[in-house]
Amino acid sequence: MKKTKQNGKVTNIFLSGVGGQGTILASNILAEVFLKAGYEVKKAEVHGMAQRGGDVTTHFRFGKKVYSPIIKYGDVDFLLSFELLESIRYINWVKPEGKIVINNQEIFPPAVNLGMAQYPKDVGKAFTKYFKNNVHMINGQEIAKNLGNMQAANVVLVGAFSNFFPEIKDEQWIDALKTLLAPKLHDLNVKAFYEGKKAL
């Protein structure tokens, strides 16, 4: 894969998923890593009604100087999505040269459960049409399951995503993981990170 070097400008990362998938932890890992790497970091998420099952998004920005906590529509450099429908929902937010990492998982919203709406088909193809080789589908669920815990899928995704930032060392990601997670979860998530890293 092509490596991306950060060069002083603000980098915009948009995370999207479904409540309960661990997107908040993922964005906290990013925050820990980029803050310690010396950048100004801003992130914004909407909490609200017990968002169980609702959609969850995080705007994550880092650079030398960051003003708005919200990314400008159309200015997303990286879309990191934990679910297929929640990735395509934000396809218009991504810059033409933007990079996309998607967890290959479907979670049906109520209207689909009720048989009143169609779950979008071929999400990967829709992305590839516009973003060509910059689209990366990851089987986060499967990889996490093989490690013995589906809950680690979010860290698998973070591992995959880490490939885009060669200036950040593995240890910096691992340190962030260990800072944010209880000790009993360290082994599993370190493995999940490396498996994810290999997957992209």
């Binding site: 968002q51 169980r52 609702g54 529509y73 159309g74 396809i91 979008p120």
Partner: peptide
């Protein structure tokens, strides 16, 4: 100049919060 519309988000099923 608005960004390019690749998919109309209004065509996608919404995901409102639900009782657990």
């Amino acid at each position: 100049k608005p960004p390019k519309i690749r998919v109309k988000p209004e065509d996608l099923p919404r995901r409102p919060p639900n009782l657990c």
